[in-house]
Amino acid sequence: MFNNTQSSSRSFQAIRRALFTLSFTGAAMCTAMMPAVANAAPPAQQKTQVPGFFRMKLGDFEVTALYDGYIDLDPKILKGASAKDIQNLLARMFLDNTPGVQTAVNGFLVHTGEHLVLVDTGSATAFGPTVGAMLGNIRAAGYEPAQIDTVLLTHLHADHSRGLLTADGKAAFPNAEVRVAKADADFWLDEQIAAKAPEAAQPMFKLAREAVAPYVAAGKFKTFAEGEALIPGVVVSPSPGHTPGHSGYLFTSKEQSLLVWGDVVHNHAVQFARPEIAIEFDIDSKKAIASRKKVFADAAKNKLWVAGAHLPFPGIGHVRAEAKGYAWVPVEYGPIRSDR
Rank of each mutant, 00 (worst) to 15 (best):
K79L: 15
G69Y: 00
I86P: 00
P43M: 13
V63S: 06
V110E: 02
A36V: 08
Y67W: 12
G107V: 08
M56L: 15
P51E: 08
V37N: 06
D60S: 12
A40K: 14
I86F: 00
D72K: 05
M34N: 13
D72C: 07
Q46V: 15
P51R: 06
L78K: 00
S82T: 10
L58Y: 03
F61T: 01
P42I: 11
A65V: 09
D85P: 01
A104D: 15
Q49Y: 07
V37C: 12
R92Y: 09
L89V: 02
A32I: 13
D85M: 09
N39W: 11
K76L: 04
T48V: 15
E62Q: 13
F61A: 01
M56F: 09
D60M: 05
D96L: 06
P51A: 15
A38N: 13
P75F: 04
D68K: 10
D96G: 06
D72T: 08
T64E: 06
F61D: 00
D85C: 03
I77F: 00
E62R: 09
L58N: 02
D72F: 15
A81K: 05
P35M: 00
K84L: 14
G52V: 13
F54I: 12
A83R: 10
N88E: 13
G69L: 01
R55H: 05
N88M: 06
V101I: 09
T48N: 13
E62K: 08
P75Q: 04
D74L: 01
T103Y: 07
V50D: 13
K79Q: 13
K47R: 15
A36E: 10
A81Q: 03
K47W: 09
V63E: 05
D72A: 10
A104C: 11
A104E: 11
L89N: 02
K47C: 12
L73H: 10
Y67N: 15
M33G: 11
A104Q: 09
P35N: 03
K57N: 10
T48W: 07
A40I: 10
A36R: 12
M34S: 07
V105S: 12
Q45M: 12
L66H: 03
R55M: 07
K47A: 14
L90H: 01
M93K: 07
D60T: 13
S82H: 03
F53V: 02
I86T: 10
A40R: 11
Q102W: 05
F94A: 11
F61I: 02
E62D: 04
P42K: 08
F61H: 08
A44T: 03
V50P: 12
A83V: 12
K76T: 14
L89Q: 05
V101G: 05
V105A: 07
F61P: 03
G52S: 00
K57C: 10
D85T: 15
G59I: 03
A40G: 03
R92L: 11
A83W: 04
N39P: 00
P42Q: 08
G69P: 06
F53A: 00
D68N: 09
L66C: 01
G52N: 02
A38H: 07
D68Y: 02
N39Y: 12
Y70W: 10
L73K: 14
K76N: 14
K79C: 00
L78S: 08
D60V: 07
L73P: 02
R55K: 15
M34G: 05
Q46F: 11
L95M: 11
P35K: 00
Q49R: 11
A104K: 06
Q49L: 14
V50Q: 15
F53W: 13
L78V: 02
A38M: 12
